[in-house]
Amino acid sequence: MRNLLITAILVVLSSTFVYVTTSGQLQFGKPAQTRMDDYFLRHGQEQTGANNIVTAVVFDFRGFDTLGEATVLFVVVLGVGMLFRKLMAEEEEEEQAA
């Protein structure tokens, strides 16, 4: 039953992917909508003063996104630290008990 379900999911997803990639809706080298990116390319330099437009998008136009990303990184390291501190404390306890 479980294997049947997994096979069904994979067949449906792969047929969708194959349809999307071969039906001609997506064409490599010809993006469908470019208005926002053309705006960034034309006005990014005068509005932010950075030559690298990707950095201008990351740190200026989408600054909130980057703030959330930095927070995620901080919280992840906090979580890893808490996990390993707990593990090491348990190791110590087992050592003392044994």
Binding site: D37, F40, V54, A56, V57, V58, D65, E69
Partner: peptide, 14 residues
Amino acid sequence: LPTVQAMVLTSIVI
């Protein structure tokens, strides 16, 4: 296009 590259940069770090 620059926006998708910025999104991928975010995605890699996450």
